[in-house]
Design a protein around this nucleic acid. Structure first.
Lengths: 111, 111
DNA sequence: ATATATACATAGACGCCTTAGGTAAGGAGA
DNA sequence: TCTCCTTACCTAAGGCGTCTATGTATATAT
């Protein structure tokens, strides 16, 4: 896929996944990959900086957990501000995709 | 709007408008603005570099015309390669928006 | 032993969009 | 006349998110 399309979408996708309950980076990437039917491959170089950025912005909080097998995972929870940001981003996405489809459909005369 | 969302979309929107028939920069911006219900304000700093870039890539060709009032306009026509690129970008957009909606819809369990 | 999957992290490069500025002509209104 | 807005083109510099590449570390499978 054209990765330039991802600009500004990574945050929304991450927030959306985290909004369903605490989860960690690797799992977020797997979820996004699976629910986009393999389309969105969140690269580590985008994923982790985005998580850190959103934590700085207080949209997420984090805590470490250790599994019984000895692997460490950094879990993220969405904050109230994060939930609000997600809602805004969803609205923004709706307007954006309607805008694109409006232009693309323009050839066939809709309005 | 969040302008980062525009990444990679400007070319598709321009190609789409030009594909309907020869037109010029200012008019393209007006068309996109109108058909996105005022949502997409193509800035000159994005529009003209994009037109030049796509002309370099042989997706568009251009010619100058002078109006009776003395204004000069640079008209653009889409090439065969441009039409193919547009078709690809439309497919890409369809997959992309389906992917986003797949992730966003994931909370309500679709697959 | 080696490879793969899990799991985190960072540095530097890249490229498009933005802001801001420039040129130039026409028409409207004071 | 002077000012302002619209039309119409163009470019330079800055910002910033994503990518590639790299590093660390453990567990499991071959």
């Amino acid at each position: 896929m054209d990765s330039r399309l991802l600009w500004g979408m990574v945050d929304m996708l991450i927030l959306d996944v985290v909004s369903r309950g605490p989860t960690y980076g690797y799992q977020i990437a797997q979820t996004v990959l699976s629910q986009s039917s393999g389309y969105f491959e969140l690269k580590e170089g985008s994923l982790y900086p985005a998580l850190h950025r959103m934590e700085r912005q207080k949209l997420l909080t984090s805590y470490w957990e250790e599994t019984q097998e000895g692997r460490r995972r950094k879990f993220y929870k969405i904050t109230l501000a994060g939930q609000r940001a997600l809602d805004e981003k969803r609205d923004e996405w709706a307007r954006f995709s309607a805008g694109v489809n409006g232009v693309l459909g323009g050839a066939y005369g809709l309005a």
